[in-house]
């Protein structure tokens, strides 16, 4: 959030209130206020794709507002007509007639001279997992197989602690370089990769998923991502080459244990 910009926007809107402008000016002011808010008020800036969508919605809403009452319709029409015909607005009209073509020309210029951006693709962050994966020749059913050591949490806390400990070892041996000490996806090497490593502290990552999903992602890594998650720029290794099944389940236990989160429970049909 960029507080200064927000305050400036609010100040302009408040100032406008005292000027008692027509409905058209109000609509335009609101449009630009939202535009400025999205582009400069929020830090980091909102991606263009989202800003475009926001502005489309705002446009529709403003149109709806202006046309929702006969009086406002009339007022808007009259002020538009006045703007184009009245002597009073001659200078602003000329300014607009000149400024808009200049703006268009500038747009053409900047779009023709900026370096094209590398091909971007909307990645699917949480692609759907397959129903089963093959792990070293064994089939793991991602929908129905639960973490075989999860039940120890209730049954045998000592054994559970051992598994978590083993998971801790696995994590520091393999994962800490990228996912970091705090599991916030900010490890030593994190800055060198795009997409950046997953942040397990974020409640929208592992806390939203069942453990089978994590098993799939850990075992198959970046190379095992489905097509919809292309480009396969993910540097996540396919850990099935290095880890045993038990180690993977253990490190999953550790991930949840360290972040104080719980895996999404399987829902049972009523």
């Amino acid at each position: 959030m960029n507080v200064l910009v927000i305050l400036a926007i609010i100040a302009v809107m408040v100032a406008l209130r005292f000027l008692k402008p027509t409905i058209v000016v109000w609509a335009i002011a609101w449009w630009f206020a939202v535009f400025a808010m999205a582009n400069y008020g929020i830090d980091p800036p909102v991606p263009t794709s989202v800003t475009n969508m926001f502005m489309a919605i705002v446009t529709i809403a403003l149109l709806a507002y202006v046309t929702a009452a006969e009086g406002r319709m009339r007022e808007a029409g009259e002020s538009l007509v006045a703007f184009f015909t009245s002597k009073k607005y001659f200078i602003p009209l000329v300014i607009m007639l000149v400024a808009v073509p200049l703006l268009v020309a500038f747009n053409v210029y900047s779009s023709m001279t900026t370096q094209p951006a590398p091909p971007a693709a909307g990645r699917t962050i949480h692609p759907p997992p397959p129903a089963t994966v093959s792990f070293k020749g064994r089939t793991v059913d991602l929908n129905n197989d639960v973490n075989p050591y999860r039940h120890l949490e209730d049954d045998d806390s000592e054994a559970f602690a051992q598994h978590v400990d083993n998971g801790r070892r696995v994590y520091y041996e393999n994962c800490v370089y990228c996912h970091g000490d705090n599991m916030a996806g900010d490890g030593h090497f994190a800055h060198g990769f795009n997409p950046i490593p997953a942040n397990f502290q974020d409640p929208t990552t592992i806390a939203m998923l069942q453990e089978g999903y994590l098993f799939w992602r850990i075992a198959k890594g970046g190379p095992g991502l489905p097509v919809e998650s292309t480009p396969w720029a993910s540097a996540m290794p396919a850990w099935e080459l290095f880890l045993s099944e038990e180690e993977i389940w253990d490190v999953i236990l550790f991930l949840y244990d360290f972040t104080d989160q719980r895996p999404r429970a399987r829902e049972v049909h009523e």
């Binding site: 794709s49 475009n52 969508m53 909307g122 699917t124 397959p130 489905p226 097509v227 919809e228």
Partner: peptide, 11 residues
């Protein structure tokens, strides 16, 4: 058309 266009092929 404005959202990402992806075809999902069978495995």
């Amino acid at each position: 058309q404005t959202v990402p266009q992806k075809i999902t092929y069978p495995p």
